[in-house]
Computed example of a mutant assay.
Amino acid sequence: MKSTSKYEMIQQILTDLKQPAYRFQQIADAIFKQRIGEYDRMTILPKEIRKELIKHLGEQVLGLTPVIQKTSVQVNKVLFAIQGGEHIEAVQLCYERGWKSYCISSQCGCGYGCSFCATGTIGLKRNLTADEITDQLLYFHLNGHVLDSVSFMGMGEALANPNIFDTLKMLTDPRIFALGHRRITVSTIGILPGIERLTTEFPQINLTFSLHSPIDEQRSKLMPINNRFPLHDVLNKLDQHICATGRKVYIAYILLRGENDSNEHAEAMAALLKNRGPWEHLYHVNLIPYNATAVTPESFHQSDKERVQRFVSILKSKGIKVTVRTQFGTDIDAACGQLYGRGEST
């Protein structure tokens, strides 16, 4: 069942009180321009409106409860408590040139069980509501941070959560979060109906596909979703996405030593991405160093630098665009695949 967002509820309360249309903008400006986090402090509003807002929505604009914040070089990770006694995590990355990027969660846990991912060991607890997803960003915003760019690479598979499309509407709504479509990235393990809907409804939003092996049989072992949405079907859908949008698609690939980092894997990935038509130059590979945690298999290790460089040079020699991602936050389990949503301090 679709849940009503707090912003929709505010509009309904104002309608019920027969308030003029500009009232919603006053509240939005209080939250998003003045960074006011309590309804009672929005003194531009008559007291009766503030009382109604508090009655229906509580005193705080933010619906999540921050529990623990861990900070490392250029990284802040926040653990939030959500309804039902569960926890989720969000990560802020601060780049040296001043840019602030956010990695947010779309589900509590994840049901897809990719073997190298800490979040997958929890299983899926539940989908997050649009408010719970956007509140992760609102927390940072209310604490004075600029929201430069956002990626759905936290806990969960964004395109498996039906609330994600309402979330994207809220994030791009010029009255509230007002994020540019090109500053948002949705990452997926290959949920075909979701990719299709994203192409139609949000063609300018960045799309990242988690590949992790170009060999079907191995990918099915690492990522069971491959049995349901096989690699070649996903790539055909991505071709359609690129063709319809003219936008790049990013291919995420975690390098696991001795598992998927051989010359043969590099050759197979190049073969997969070549000869796909006039848009093949819009595929861009992001190689990601593997990040171990206490709950991921001990058999997985990070590839050594020479092997990474060899992998890169093979891809480049075949004309594939490739970047090795800089990793932040591995020391506080805040990097790719490490989010676990547990409250224990380590």
Rank of each mutant, 00 (worst) to 15 (best):
A268M: 01
S115Y: 02
E217T: 13
E8Y: 10
G329L: 01
R228T: 11
F177N: 01
T293G: 01
N226C: 07
C336L: 10
T245S: 12
S5F: 15
V78S: 06
I27Y: 02
T4R: 15
L272Q: 03
S303C: 03
I189K: 12
H212T: 06
K125Y: 10
Y102A: 08
C114Y: 08
E196N: 09
G84S: 05
I54R: 06
A244M: 10
A334N: 00
E96M: 09
A268N: 02
K248W: 15
Q107P: 06
M153H: 00
A268Q: 02
D148S: 10
D173G: 03
D216M: 01
A158F: 13
K305P: 03
R97G: 06
E259P: 00
T245I: 15
R97F: 10
G194V: 11
Y22E: 05
F229K: 08
I68Y: 07
P214T: 04
L124M: 13
K169M: 13
L339A: 06
I184V: 10
M155P: 08
L272H: 01
Q60I: 01
R35A: 02
Q218I: 10
C94V: 11
H87S: 07
R175L: 12
K237E: 14
D16K: 11
I31D: 06
L64Q: 02
I133D: 00
T245M: 07
T188I: 11
A268P: 00
G120E: 04
A28W: 09
L159Y: 04
A28F: 10
Q34E: 11
K316T: 08
N161S: 10
L315W: 05
H241G: 02
Y102K: 12
R228G: 08
G194I: 07
N260W: 05
M42W: 02
F177G: 02
G98W: 07
G329Q: 00
Q83N: 08
K248F: 15
E344T: 10
D131Y: 11
R228Y: 13
L231G: 01
M155K: 08
I68D: 07
P297K: 03
G343R: 13
D16R: 09
R228K: 12
G85K: 06
V186Q: 05
A252F: 01
T199R: 09
L159A: 03
